[in-house]
Design a protein around this nucleic acid. Sequence first.
DNA 1: TATAATTATTTCGAAATCGAGATAATTGAA
DNA 2: TTCAATTATCTCGATTTCGAAATAATTATA
Lengths: 153, 153
Amino acid sequence: MNGQKERDGEISLKLFVVLSRAMQAIQKRVEANIKGFGLNLTEFAVLELLYHKGEQPIQKIGQKVLLASSSITYVVDKLEKKGYLVRQPCPNDRRVIYAVLTDEGKKMMEKIFPMHREAMMEILGGLTTEEKEWTIEKIKKLGLYAKKGESST
Amino acid sequence: MNGQKERDGEISLKLFVVLSRAMQAIQKRVEANIKGFGLNLTEFAVLELLYHKGEQPIQKIGQKVLLASSSITYVVDKLEKKGYLVRQPCPNDRRVIYAVLTDEGKKMMEKIFPMHREAMMEILGGLTTEEKEWTIEKIKKLGLYAKKGESST
DNA sequence: TATAATTATTTCGAAATCGAGATAATTGAA
DNA sequence: TTCAATTATCTCGATTTCGAAATAATTATA
């Protein structure tokens, strides 16, 4: 008998729908919040990476923020035009270009990151801290497994 | 003392990152799977809605699939060109246009939906059925809460 | 050393999505 | 009934992302 398998099929479909809807609602609110600072989610993610991890080669940014290389070029262009970062060629390897926060970029993040954290607590306030910890574990497992099979299925 | 609040801030940030990464990995695989049938995720979602719920007014589709009205026009155009659905004016209300699956569209879904379900079970195989059920509950709570506050924060 | 393979970044064109506004039909209120 | 407000769809221009290919530099191999 495989009623069990049938059931897992339905539940898997359901989980995907629920996850998609929740993410969309959450992202929409986070995006709205950050738009107030003249940034979109991607731009914020890049600035945050540089703010917390220091200067990064362009392509490292792509790996962390999960963007194609051509997309990063675009985002870094925009942030450079806005004055939040500069491109800095690596002296050892002339293929590499670092993205480096400007003082203005640093100041910006100092100002808005705490606000972002507050907003995050509010937006994700549907679960208690303990529930969030549990959920992080489960979602991490889910994500790692999905990533592992990237080539096979 | 508010060390508790500090902690929830960090955990909320973490949860957002984990959710984003997991969703991206999952979506990438689902997308890859469906691409084999010449569809993207949005097109599949629209076809699935019509397949399971029957013909729908264009704007109902937008609500269900969470797309702006202009985006649905675009998707429905594509599906119509591919021959999977047709537009059918509503006789009672001449503003309304229904999207209706063609026989070809129906046949297509009959063929690919079971495969999609199988793929889904595989992709989301990182959790047991019970864990999935638990996760659905939590993510639902999270999503509903985030949606509720859409206007305020 | 010369050549091939790899790596980092950019350019370019296409796809997907959005929001604002246009058009047309319906509903509600005076 | 008439006019204003609402509703459904579409058009248009802009934004964001992608993948394929171009360019340039580095590393590995023969």
